[in-house]
Amino acid sequence: MKKEQDYIKDIAEIRSMMERSSKFLSLSGWAGIMAGLYALGGIIVAHRIYGFYPDEIFYSSDKLPNVIVLALLVLILALMTAVILSRKKARDKNEKIWTATSRRLVVHMAFPLVSGGILLLVFISKGLIGLIAPLSLIFYGLALVNASKYTIDDVKYLGFIQIGFGLISSFFIEFGLLFWSCGFGIIHIIYGIYMYIRYEK
């Protein structure tokens, strides 16, 4: 015969299972903070060292290959940090990181990101460098909104902000780099700190 405690435990178990099997909750706030710092670092290098500052839609720079390599480096570093920190967080909670839930999260992020990435490559090949900042912000925001169903709901708002920054920066191409550093850099850092305080501290 079960006791009251058992029923309470049953309910706790049901709730935890529903959450674990539908949302990936091991995203770390630190991942956001680090991604923001990498992005800012990348922008400073691109601007100061490579003199990269697209102020028109058609823009050319002989340092473009260097900037692309730099951007990829920042992206890989940010992704690796996110995976390592999430894995640590999942392990602390005695959960696995690669489950049906996290697979779904990755797939839903990947659709907007890959389509956006391909579009950007096409634009870069046609010299439309000034559109990189607004479009990458918009597609990244769409990816976040799309993936938010499968993780902490707040990710949606991060997505809205990125889309907003992207749309505004498409009006002000000459400030593209500035909007880009706000969106990918500062907003990520603020969001990461907020997540850390709210869910991890």
Binding site: M18, S22, A100
Partner: peptide
């Protein structure tokens, strides 16, 4: 039942992981 209630479907491996 909890896991299936919030998912359209799950396969054997996913259920085992959860």
């Amino acid at each position: 039942m909890s896991a299936l209630a919030v998912n359209e479907y799950l396969d054997f491996t996913s259920l085992k992981e959860y």
